[in-house]
Design a protein around this nucleic acid. Structure first.
Lengths: 188, 188
DNA sequence: GTACGATACGGAGGACCCCGCCACTTAGCA
DNA sequence: TGCTAAGTGGCGGGGTCCTCCGTATCGTAC
């Protein structure tokens, strides 16, 4: 396969741009037909570039994921390992709660599976970037060593999903994150 | 409005029975048409008895909810307030993780909203039954006083949603519940 | 500059779903 | 036994997802 044809690349970009707006407006279950209509392409073309809604969401949110990875790498060098981790978790929560659909995208995506073969690029990228941050925190004794990046992402994702219908999802999500960080009932 | 007619009650029961199986098999987004077909009634009849998927899910899970309420009341008299609360949370997690769709039913349902007018019978019932348990635990100093039943249900619900696609959802959900109970990073 | 082959496109059509409408059946009372 | 209103179910409309296939277009080789 040489390269993509020029018109194909153009359409890809158009679809992606429209998809971003649509997903932002209507969440993860935005209509693919609608996206095709707005982008001025046939519905088959959307499907050709993004086989399944999953692939589309992944593409839409890859930038945000990238931003989160960058933030993680930036924070990995910070002095206070615990504070750094918490700050990153806060950032993740903000993203997951505000960007309707990001949480779904992460969940359905092997984020919650152990099977390494099914972990897609998105999750793998996150894991790689955040792991140092987490290890630092573990070494500092701030978190248990058996906590994984996937655990954290799954928890935040769950919080985002469960607060989606709240009047103020972001605030509520952060409240529950704080509760999760300090523990419902720590002693024991 | 005297009472329901006998045939109507029969159909109600049939539909509910079928719905339980279908939801168990296909999750919260089981097809209402399919349920109607299996139950041998028209799709309009399903919608007449249960206006919207929400109502159906609520009815389907009301028994489970009731069981959870009973368990809560039973545990409220137990000696160790903290252990009682944790046990109940475990039971809730098991239900939410195993019964595909229960989590969705709870979430979409005002469980995550503050508006008291929109809190339906299901959530209200849970709140009422579990609150004593939580107060006991709070008085024993096991949980912060500002934690609400809704908070707990929302967290567990979120965990269930986020682990839905895991190979072993129940086990994973309990793992993450344990993590949430003791806190990701308690000190600080 | 043209002609050709692979690549990409988009519309048509099938399957499914949710929803509202309305003529018809039937249960329950008098 | 007959009447009436509650209850039913099928039909059509609008929507989505998905696949297939004839066709337009790009990129290239000549």
């Amino acid at each position: 396969m040489p390269v993509q044809r020029a018109d194909a690349r153009r359409n890809y970009a158009r679809i992606l741009a429209v998809a971003e707006e649509e997903v932002a407006a209507h969440g993860a279950d935005a209509s693919l037909e609608q996206i095709a209509r707005i982008a001025g392409v046939g519905s088959a073309t959307v499907r050709r570039h993004f086989p399944g809604r999953q692939a589309l969401l992944q593409a839409v949110f890859s930038e945000r994921i990238e931003a989160l990875c960058a933030r993680a790498e930036e924070l990995a060098g910070a002095g206070d390992a615990r504070a750094a981790l918490l700050e990153w978790l806060g950032a993740l929560t903000t993203y997951a709660a505000s960007a309707r659909g990001l949480a779904d995208a992460l969940v359905q995506d092997g984020m919650a599976t152990d099977d390494p073969a099914h972990v897609n690029a998105c999750s793998a990228r996150l894991n790689g970037a955040v792991d140092p941050l987490l290890r630092n925190a573990a070494q500092a004794g701030a978190v248990s060593p058996d906590v994984t990046v996937t655990d954290l992402v799954t928890l935040v994702t769950g919080i985002a999903l469960a607060t989606e219908h709240h009047p103020d999802p972001t605030a509520e999500a952060h409240r529950l994150l704080a509760l999760t960080v300090r523990g419902i009932s720590p002693q024991g």
